[in-house]
Simulated assay, not measured.
Amino acid sequence: MRQLIIIILFLLQGSWLFAQQEKSLVHKGNELYQQKKYTEAEATYRKSVEKKKNTEGNFNLGDALYKQKKFGEAGEQFNQLGEASTNKAVAAKAYHNLGNSLLESKKLQESIDAYKKSLINNPKDDETRYNLAYAQEKLKQQQQQDKKNNKNQDKKNQDKNKKDQDKKNQDKKDQDKKNQDQNKKDQDKQNQDKKDQKDGQQPQPNKLSKEDAERMLDALNNDEKQTQDKLKNKKLKGTKVHVEKDW
Score class of each variant (00 low, 15 high):
E127K: 14
L132R: 08
L119K: 02
A92S: 10
D188S: 06
Q141V: 14
V90L: 07
N157C: 04
Q170G: 01
N179P: 03
Q109Y: 08
N149A: 12
K106T: 07
K177W: 06
S111M: 07
T86M: 03
K185M: 04
K117M: 05
Q142Y: 14
I112P: 01
Q190W: 07
E127P: 06
A89V: 10
Q165M: 13
D193F: 15
L119D: 06
D171Q: 09
N79T: 09
L108K: 02
E83I: 15
A94Q: 00
S118H: 01
K147R: 04
N183C: 05
D193E: 15
D193R: 13
A135D: 02
K178W: 00
K117C: 05
Y115I: 02
K156R: 02
K184R: 12
Y134S: 09
N149E: 11
K156W: 02
N131M: 14
E127C: 06
K189F: 07
K93H: 08
N97Y: 01
N150Y: 07
S101W: 00
K156P: 00
K162V: 09
N157K: 09
K117P: 04
L139H: 12
A133S: 13
D164S: 07
S105H: 01
F78T: 09
N191W: 12
A135T: 01
A114F: 04
N79K: 14
D113P: 01
K106N: 13
N131Q: 14
Q80P: 06
N169S: 08
T86L: 10
Q142E: 15
D125S: 11
